[in-house]
Write a protein that binds this DNA or RNA. Structure first.
Lengths: 129, 129
DNA sequence: TCATTTCGATTACGGATGTAAACATGAAGC
DNA sequence: GCTTCATGTTTACATCCGTAATCGAAATGA
């Protein structure tokens, strides 16, 4: 077997995901940076953020490069991969894998605005070309 | 405040959701019925299914009507409500609430087949009318 | 050099989850 | 009536998750 990228993607929890979003937004960042960025919405203590960063490092979702006394953290997995996986999970679990059913449902619940519809229409046109 | 339907919707876990799906499919059912239906895919013991049913009753997601020695279980929440809530959670968390972004992503990842696209197109036509 | 600050690492701890075994109790045979 | 089956209830228990406090070591300042 190849020795290459062997990172089995361990599940990222919701709290951990919030940390990932910060890192996806501002790549190499210190624990303090992340904590600051999250203080607004989540109000977590620095200790909590450190715990989450530690868990993410273990899960190989982020890297930690030594920078003097501290680490600089950066994502190892791409955001698009993550949201792709998560979206697929949902579609599989709730809609038996049929993405169209999801769209139908969103439309039904009027979760789609007029603008959304227009946007999707444009997308479809592009895809069909 | 109204005294009416006061059931705060407690979160349903993934395992519990599997049980809900069975009940949504065959409404009043006994624990054994549910267990049988799930044995195929999940391979849970009857004991496990009973635990899940108990938790769902507590969460007021299903009802348990006495029927002689046992109970008949039935969903109290509707499937469309559940998948609506869950879909919304995902869209909010991963796409900042923009459902169109989800569709765009699915399209990008080619999670949408040619058939899906056609189906969605039809949906849109209907919605725009 | 000693106290303070700053980090990461270790430990904590309650609640949820997945997965079940053990227990209690009534029904059904024998 | 006593044993056995069926069924719900209670208890169990490891892991994950959210949320930190504490510990230990290095850097910094006085």
């Amino acid at each position: 077997m190849g020795q290459g990228s062997n990172a089995k993607p361990e599940r990222i929890s919701e709290a951990e995901h919030a940390v990932m979003e910060v890192l996806w937004g501002a790549s190499p960042a210190t624990a303090a940076d992340v904590s600051d960025a999250l203080a607004q919405n989540r109000g977590w203590s620095l200790a909590t953020v450190k715990t989450l960063l530690g868990r993410l490092v273990q899960k190989q979702a982020i890297s930690a490069s030594p920078d003097g006394r501290r680490y600089l953290y950066a994502p190892l997995i791409e955001r698009s991969d993550y949201i792709g996986t998560e979206s697929k999970r949902l579609v599989d679990r709730l809609f038996g894998g049929r993405a169209a059913s999801l769209v139908a449902h969103l439309a039904d619940q009027e979760a789609l605005t007029e603008d959304d519809l227009t946007e999707i229409e444009a997308l479809l046109k592009e895809l069909k070309r």
